[in-house]
Write a protein that binds this DNA or RNA. Structure first.
Lengths: 139, 139
DNA sequence: CGATCGTGTGAGAATGGTTCTCATGACCAG
DNA sequence: CTGGTCATGAGAACCATTCTCACACGATCG
């Protein structure tokens, strides 16, 4: 086996803009949203480039991906340590949370059933205080 | 408030075939897979109908949906009680598992952060014994 | 048993997110 | 400064899913 042969990652205006935008936001956003936001702020970037930049960031572990209920991918700047998410399904507000017990539970259950190379995925969805019905009669 | 106005659910050859097929399989399958399987077995059903039947089954709580990493939806006949899944990412084999602690944890964490109307989603992915590398030098 | 109403079906078109293509532009090492 | 390589962008291609709409069929009632 030879070198992994990973291309050099260049720093460009576009990639910088995508990461900077993600740093300002505190919730999960779709690639389409991010593209529109960049366009609004005048920092125009091609849609394909937004997708490529996000993919690179995910590969580098700087960004987390999440699939919404309709299959659309949403991205968020996250800490590199393992964690789960508490997401507001209305405004996207997200809190990173840890749950050590579930880590052990997942490993144990997987082992009991003969599963190896285990990963788990745990997300909690709810309505945050600002979006709670009653704060403003929405609908 | 009047009656929910849910249309009567008819029993047709196509819906019966979809549910019967799901009953025979023990892993998550995409709508496309199910459509192809039905076609192979001669029980031809239109693709749109497969989607509609699956949606109806999900609404009735007879089938669970899961989004694969690339956003494709996968369906499986599941028990109606709340549970999580241990899924083989190679063959799709799935085991239903329960984890009472995580239920309480999710509720507590959500409450701490002022989130209401909480749901959670927990899936464990791994490689089952039959698919383990070494059982057969695949690929 | 047979008419009737309303739901289900299917082929193909439409939708929409994501990826690919490829000619052109921009990093950055030397 | 210059070259080679990687990045960009506009649009096409892709593909899962949904929609459209004319027609078929299930259930119910007479």
């Amino acid at each position: 086996m030879s070198a992994p042969e990973v291309p050099v990652r260049r720093q460009t205006r576009q990639r910088t803009a995508v990461l900077a935008l993600l740093d300002e936001l505190d919730g999960f956003r779709t690639a389409q949203d991010l593209h529109a936001l960049l366009r609004e702020r005048g920092d125009a970037v091609g849609l394909a480039t937004v997708y490529r930049a996000l993919q690179a960031l995910v590969d580098d572990g700087l960004v987390d991906v999440l699939r919404s209920e309709d299959g659309e991918a949403a991205y968020r700047r996250c800490s590199p340590v393992h964690h789960h998410h508490l997401v507001c399904r209305s405004c996207g507000l997200t809190v990173e949370v840890a749950d050590p017990p579930v880590e052990r539970w997942a490993a144990r259950v997987a082992a009991e059933h003969g599963f190896a190379d285990v990963q788990h995925q745990l997300e909690v969805f709810g309505t945050c205080r600002s979006c709670a019905p009653g704060a403003a009669a929405q609908r």
